[in-house]
């Protein structure tokens, strides 16, 4: 046995757990999802091939599918940019502040640690339509009370508020680290060039931060499309048949998929939904990666 073969064998012994994982828990389920998506499958009986029927039903017959698509898009399009902006804003403030960073950093990050079930229940209490803390605050400043999770108009904003409370801490810490990494020499050079703080922020700091912004955006976007626990707990009423929030206004994609797959055991249909979401996310990721060439500046790379 040559030295090279022996080295290879030894290395593959080391990576073998991960190879098995890639095959059994990634590659196989991915392929199987595509296969199941073209079958009628209730798990108790073997899958029956029905071609694209699941997709036809999904796009033309299942009204709730489109409700779920709309709700998820609404949730994502509003919450992701807000999360990014608030996280960046807070990190910027923290970077400017001279004292108390530890305290504020902890305050903004703690909600990210709270289990999602707890977070959801807590906000259901705060957003109680009769006398929750949020409505008490509105009333105190002379505004009308809101129905929050019990109103079609405010149920999705309720979910978004929860996403903000819990989802800002992590990107904020990452942004803060990125800001601390901005080389002092560049800032000093910009000062000598006679720029003011505002210009320095937009022309020096933000461009240097674009890789971090890109990373946070991608991660948050993928997670947001797959939001589950918050919407599930907020709308739970044991049976899958009841609407998820008023007029299903909190029925997000993953909750619909979960109900199809695990309440009705329509595994084929749920797989088809998974495949659609997967393809959408792949396309979105590719678009984002492609667009990043235009707006993400990597250190060492020459500017376009």
């Amino acid at each position: 046995m040559s030295r090279k073969t022996r080295d290879n064998l030894r290395a593959y012994l080391f990576v073998s757990p991960w190879l098995i994982s890639l095959l059994v828990f990634t590659a196989y389920p991915m392929l199987a999802s595509f296969y199941f998506s073209m079958t009628r499958y209730t798990i108790v009986r073997p899958p029956v091939w029905i071609g694209l029927e699941n997709f036809r039903v999904m796009f033309t017959k299942d009204d709730l599918f489109w409700v779920a698509v709309w709700n998820t898009l609404y949730y994502t399009v509003v919450s992701v940019p807000l999360q990014m902006l608030v996280a960046l804003f807070l990190a910027t403030l923290l970077n400017l502040s001279t004292r108390g960073i530890g305290f504020y950093r902890t305050a903004f990050y703690l909600p990210a640690l709270v289990p999602a079930v707890v977070t959801t229940l807590l906000w259901m209490l705060i957003l109680d339509p009769r006398a929750g803390l949020a409505n008490a605050a509105l009333e105190a400043v002379g505004l009308p009370k809101l129905g929050w999770m019990y109103s079609v108009a405010w149920s999705k904003p309720s979910l978004i508020i929860i996403a903000l409370w819990t989802g800002v801490g992590q990107p904020m810490l990452i942004f803060l680290a990125g800001l601390k990494n901005v080389p002092q020499s560049l800032l000093e050079a910009a000062i000598i060039d006679g720029t003011n703080a505002w210009q320095r922020y937009w022309r020096v700091i933000i461009p240097l931060l674009t890789p971090t912004i890109f990373f946070n955006l991608l991660i948050t976007l993928i997670a947001s499309f797959q939001v589950f626990t918050t919407a599930f707990v907020a709308t739970a009423s044991a049976s899958g048949a009841s609407p998820a929030g008023p007029l299903n206004s909190m029925l997000v994609y993953m909750v619909h998929l979960y109900r199809q797959g695990f309440s009705y055991f329509a595994m084929g249909y749920a797989s088809a939904m998974a495949v659609v979401l997967f393809l959408v996310l792949v396309v979105l990721t590719l678009i984002l990666v492609r667009s990043s060439r235009e707006w993400v500046h990597y250190e060492g790379a020459s500017p376009r």
Binding site: L22, F25, S33, F36
Partner: peptide, 22 residues
């Protein structure tokens, strides 16, 4: 490949993994 799976949405492996364990 390992890096690519970092971005893999969990939803696409959910059901077959369940079926496997079932």
């Amino acid at each position: 490949i390992t890096l690519a799976t970092l971005l893999l949405p969990g939803v696409v492996t959910l059901i077959p993994t369940y079926v496997l364990f079932q």
